[in-house]
Amino acid sequence: MTKLRAGIVGAGIAGASCAGTLAAAGWEVDVFDKARGAGGRLSTRRFEQGWATLGTPFVSAKRDPFRSQLRDWVRQGWVSAVRGNIWQGRATISWAEAQLQNHYCPTIEPSQLVRKLLGSARLHTGHRVAALKPRTLVLDDGRELGDFDCVICSVPAPQAIPMLDALPLLRERLAEVRYRPIWSFLMRWDGGPAADVIKFDDHLLNLAVRQPSGGPGLWSVYATHEFSETYLEASEMEASNRAASALMGLLGLPWPVEIEASHLWRYARPENPVGGFWVGDRENRVALIGDGIAGVGVERAWESGLRLAQAILQSKEELAL
């Protein structure tokens, strides 16, 4: 019996969730991503001393089925509940006092969580998809990969729209989706509050999270949307230096902060997602998933991919896109 085939654009958590679910049901699944590895906002930076993340610092679940997924990751030892102290304003409070008990942090490289979700799906990194057509993916070198039973796109709306010229109904659904950016930085310093998380009450910086790997004194620092919009077109050096200066002032550090890495998440937070979990063009066998459809957060992106895969698998006679 010939296996059904799916081609998926984007190896973030939405694409991986969908790919792994279809692959576990016997589908032949190929996932294409322009980056060097899987992960999206759960990607990893490696150092001689270990790893750190510039992406989503925590994972949380508000409801099933993602709660079940998190429990499984806990049993596997891949994530653990966060129980450190938070420095907020000028006080140190416990994680429980901040009512953030349901947050987890990876104990393995965050990108490995996404790789595990992929299951037996084939991952093709360094492959930039230029266009989607009915049952076909077109790479930026002109190659057409066709004969898929369905094509699924999980990238942010502004990246998906240029791919959808041949699919105007889907293109129109994404036209109004807007995102807010976030600059994030890996910085190393000594001193400061005796806490694992710092919540800034400031218009420039939002959050700093101590990294469990990567050597002593390494933190992920996340700017506010306002800072990130102001420095949207700035160089990494300019944005990093401005953030480091703000950090030193807020924490009263008398010595320079070492900047290890930085990244602009241009499409960090969808302001007006389409709604639902997925959008499909049934006739052309193409569907869209991800936070631009389902809303903010790892949980929503994961469930977006899962729900589409379940809808496809539950349709007996034809693909229920």
Rank of each mutant, 00 (worst) to 15 (best):
R45G: 11
V274G: 05
E303I: 12
G249K: 15
R83L: 10
S60W: 13
P110W: 05
G280W: 06
K34D: 10
W87S: 11
E28G: 02
P65R: 02
V274L: 00
G249V: 07
G119H: 07
M163V: 05
F58I: 00
R135E: 12
S262Q: 02
Q112V: 09
L253G: 06
D30R: 15
R285W: 02
V31R: 07
N85D: 15
R36S: 13
K316G: 08
V296A: 11
Q112H: 11
G89I: 00
L321Y: 06
P156E: 08
L100M: 15
N206V: 12
Y104A: 01
H127W: 11
W95R: 09
F66V: 02
A14W: 00
I289Q: 01
F32V: 01
P270C: 07
D141W: 07
R75A: 09
L139M: 06
D281E: 15
R242C: 10
P162D: 11
E176V: 11
D149K: 01
S60P: 10
W183I: 05
L100E: 08
W51S: 04
V197S: 04
A25I: 13
Q49G: 09
V197C: 07
S228H: 01
G276L: 01
L264H: 13
T92Y: 04
A287L: 01
V296W: 11
A166V: 12
L306H: 08
W302S: 03
F227V: 05
G275D: 13
E258L: 13
H263A: 12
W78H: 12
I152R: 02
S228Y: 06
Y222L: 05
I13E: 01
G142K: 09
V31W: 01
L113K: 00
A309Y: 00
Q314S: 14
A23P: 08
W189N: 14
E144Y: 04
A309Q: 12
V257Y: 08
A11V: 05
W78L: 13
